[in-house]
């Protein structure tokens, strides 16, 4: 058995082997970078024309980045709600001469802000992200490991939430119709979940310390965190996307 047989592929290597749009070759840091950069650009979206241009450029690039259109659609629902609620409040409170145009501009601005993050999220692997944050950005290793380990508890905690809320329903303490009753129900269930989280964390830290986590000043990593050409390209594209609204403002006035 050779060493290369022993070391499993990284998430990026898996994606690269699978085939798909070019973004699949990118690692987590460039994915995050290209998601965050357009946020800065979106601040420059002041008119609906600029917003439309910026969004159009993003939409043109979409085929290079989407991992399954069917999976993308449900992710767009909360985004749409967020954008529309902002647009509506602008129409209501913006005090602009043309409230409709202002509302459309703010809807487009939110779309430009969130769309890259929503599309690229599909490629992001949390534990691979941890590897890269610690090995490339040199964030504190133990904090990164604790965070990725905690993420593994997400479904157990979601299940605990279900059982906690079932217990409240069975005891005659379920959420009623009124807002006060719902707030009380949510607060009580959330408290139970936090108790569960704290107990779970105490047991986890015992298990982790028994495996040498307690005094791991240095630490090696089972998987490498490579930076590829594709990562550089994606980061540059992200920066260009951030510049689009600025350029469009200059050109369109």
């Amino acid at each position: 058995m050779s060493v290369t047989d022993l070391v499993p592929p990284t998430a990026t290597q898996d994606r690269t082997a699978a085939g798909g749009p070019p973004v699949r070759r990118c690692g987590p840091l460039s994915l995050l970078g290209a998601s965050v950069l357009p946020v800065a650009g979106s601040l420059a979206v002041d008119t609906w024309r600029v917003g439309a241009v910026a969004l159009a450029v993003q939409l043109l690039l979409l085929p290079l980045a989407v991992r399954g259109w069917r999976a993308l659609l449900p992710r767009l629902v909360p985004v749409t709600i967020a954008a529309v609620s902002v647009g509506w409040s602008t129409w209501l409170l913006g005090g602009e001469a043309d409230p409709v145009a202002a509302a459309v501009a703010s809807v487009l601005r939110i779309a430009v802000l969130v769309l890259p993050g929503v599309v690229l999220l599909a490629w992001l692997d949390p534990s691979e992200t941890g590897d890269h944050l610690a090995q490339r950005l040199h964030l504190p290793a133990r904090a990164v490991v604790a965070a990725t380990a905690a993420l593994e508890q997400l479904s157990a905690l979601a299940q605990a939430w279900d059982e906690l809320s079932r217990a409240r329903r069975a005891r005659g303490l379920g959420p009623g119709r009124g807002p006060v009753s719902r707030v009380r129900w949510a607060a009580s269930t959330a408290f139970g979940l936090l108790v569960e989280a704290l107990r779970r964390a105490a047991r986890m830290s015992v298990a982790m310390d028994a495996r040498g986590f307690a005094d791991a000043a240095g630490r090696s990593w089972a998987l490498p965190a490579r930076w590829a050409l594709a990562d550089t390209v994606l980061l540059v594209v992200g920066a260009l996307l951030a510049a689009v609204p600025l350029v469009a403002t200059a050109l369109l006035g």
Partner: peptide, 16 residues
């Protein structure tokens, strides 16, 4: 370790 893991699991629990 307990501090790190507790802060992280609390964060996840608040996410839920």
């Amino acid at each position: 370790s307990l501090d790190l893991v507790t802060a992280a699991v609390l964060g996840v629990a608040f996410g839920v």
